[in-house]
Design a protein around this nucleic acid. Structure first.
Lengths: 338, 338
DNA sequence: CTATACTGCGAGATCGGTTTCTCGCGGCGA
DNA sequence: TCGCCGCGAGAAACCGATCTCGCAGTATAG
């Protein structure tokens, strides 16, 4: 049975072209790929038949024959999160310029489903980028060797694959230093999701800060990663007595700032507020949000770079770290005396 | 040559399982797919060999054999745009629950490349979702019949495929009515990208408004679709003498509001400002941004729904329209008397 | 003038599955 | 006891490409 597309037209294959041109399939393949030498006269005839029939090679058949799909997979915990969207955008841009497509999978924040999703995706693609995996270190170490070439984004522990990370700890240290310089000695950090790698890194950075400045009091309060979480943390933030608050990310910080404005808690006169990520809206608030800029699209590009590197040579695990940079805007100011 | 994965381990194929179990490949296939009858004893033996060898069928080979990839493609003008990210998220969610994956392609806002991208993507997938295509109506009408099943999102002219649209015109009318009710008689609309479908729909809505309220003056000013464009439009907005300004989207409106705050143009006392889309940040500004809510994830789900409908029966073009709803916040208020 | 090299192309294997066709074998009715 | 039916499983075709191998035919050297 001739395979037909949904139009009812039979799809035109290499055999049709071969028959129409009076040559073998091998020759058509040679003409299409331009590798071996074909007599110009025949090549021309084949080309004209290709044009007449509207032939295009089937990527699926090519994939099977070549053992290569020209596609890479990317697994993210939640496509709805702007962070992962930015990274995906970066990956997609870089991959597209190398003729690769990106297959996306959303693990729905499920740590147990993740290994299976990664493996399944890898079977359809030439490599996988595992972004901020929620799975345990053991699962990660078990699954990664089965799916190389692979790149892991935003996991701080070593894994048997290339790794691209954002140095959240350094970012939080830079931010803390800025606040200390402004005279703040009682700083509150609104924590993100407990299990997340980013949160663990923040905790490390905060500990470093506390160690560096003995007279600094670093408070922490469970919060979350959303605007709503930031809003909900308002009362606890005010009650903490901190003169400066760092949100887990910009969403949290902006949520908090919104509530502060409603309740007459002036920023930065009564309290300094800072965020993390430098999303496009961070500079739009009144006052503008002091935050830490993370070049997420570059992270995506770096992830692709690590993959293409593995395509070229079967080299093992390399490592790329992005250091965020402090962006000072109006939401942080001198601590109130006393 | 045995195909090997990047680990150097030979990939285990159906032939290996067949040989290890002492049966034919056909029987292994039958066991895996559970279709035809296989003697329980043999089936069990095959299953245990599958488990022992860690066999999993190759999706690529299945795709070739079955003529089905269990993947749908989605083409967007710019993955960096939150609008498309939300739609993608909706599509991905819905497709995943039906066992389908989503292959994304970013056309880079290029109207000329789009048809080729769509066709290429379709060759790798079972269907395509073409989102806010920038290509001309002729190109669209030429390419769509070649790639069915297909769904076109956000194009108002009829196309030979299923269509999912957001009724931008109705949204702008609702917004305009709200402003008129507040006493505004001179309204400025900051236009979006000239070629875009959304912009054309806005123009239609604005014309309807002008026709409905004869004493209403509707001004338009070229602007764009970004925060920066909104900021850049500030001087022209103030010079226009309008008492209310509608941004092409929330980004534009928020950009404008930022500049207004800097220059002491009070919102909503001196000017009312409204946006479009109701992005998550719209309620965070001071005052909160009046806007029109568009259920983008539902749009994505509807696009998938239209596809799966076409998978089931080879039915032609159905149509889904989403009507945005007005969300009134603090950025719009009564017009100044006089 | 023959032996050798090279060029251009086709036959056929291969990738890893699914599916149709066929065949052997056992049970059952006449 | 013979023949028919049906079940279970293998052989082989097929999906649509790539690629190796070898065979003609021609050019070149000895």
């Amino acid at each position: 049975m001739a395979r037909r597309n949904a139009n009812g037209r039979a799809a035109v294959t290499i055999s049709h072209v071969a028959e129409a041109s009076g040559v073998s399939r091998a020759t058509v393949s040679r003409v299409v790929n331009g590798n071996a030498s074909v007599k110009p006269e025949i090549a021309e005839r084949v080309r004209s038949e290709i044009a007449r029939l509207g032939y295009e090679p089937s990527p699926v058949a090519q994939s099977l024959s070549l053992g290569r799909t020209s596609t890479v997979g990317m697994v993210v915990p939640d496509l709805g999160n702007p962070t992962f969207q930015s990274i995906l955008h970066g990956v997609n841009q870089a991959a597209a310029s190398a003729g690769y497509r990106v297959l996306v999978a959303d693990s729905g924040e499920s740590d147990v489903d993740e290994p299976a999703i990664v493996e399944d995706l890898r079977r359809r693609t030439d490599a996988v980028i595992v972004c901020s995996p929620r799975m345990s270190a053991e699962s990660l170490n078990a699954v990664i060797p089965r799916v190389v070439p692979a790149v892991v984004v935003n996991r701080d522990e070593p894994v048997p694959a290339a790794r691209v990370v954002v140095d959240y700890a350094a970012g939080i240290v830079a931010l803390g230093r800025h606040l200390v310089d402004l005279g703040h000695r009682r700083i509150l950090h609104l924590d993100g999701p407990p299990g997340s790698n980013a949160q663990a890194a923040r905790a490390v950075g905060l500990a470093t800060l506390a160690h560096t400045y003995p007279d600094l009091v670093v408070l922490r309060e469970p919060c979350g990663a959303t605007i709503a979480a930031g809003e909900a943390a308002f009362e606890r933030a005010r009650a903490s007595g901190a003169t400066a608050v760092i949100g887990f990310n910009d969403l949290v910080a902006l949520g908090l700032m919104g509530r502060a404005a409603e309740h007459g808690w002036r920023v930065p006169d009564d309290v300094s507020i800072a965020g993390f990520d430098d999303i496009p809206f961070a500079h739009l608030s009144r006052p503008g949000l002091t935050t830490v800029h993370v070049a997420l699209e570059s992270v995506g590009e770096a992830a692709w770079g690590a993959l293409s590197h593995q395509f070229a040579e079967a080299v093992g695990a390399d490592f790329r770290s992005f250091t965020p940079v402090l962006v000072v805007r109006g939401s942080t100011g001198p601590a109130l005396p006393g």
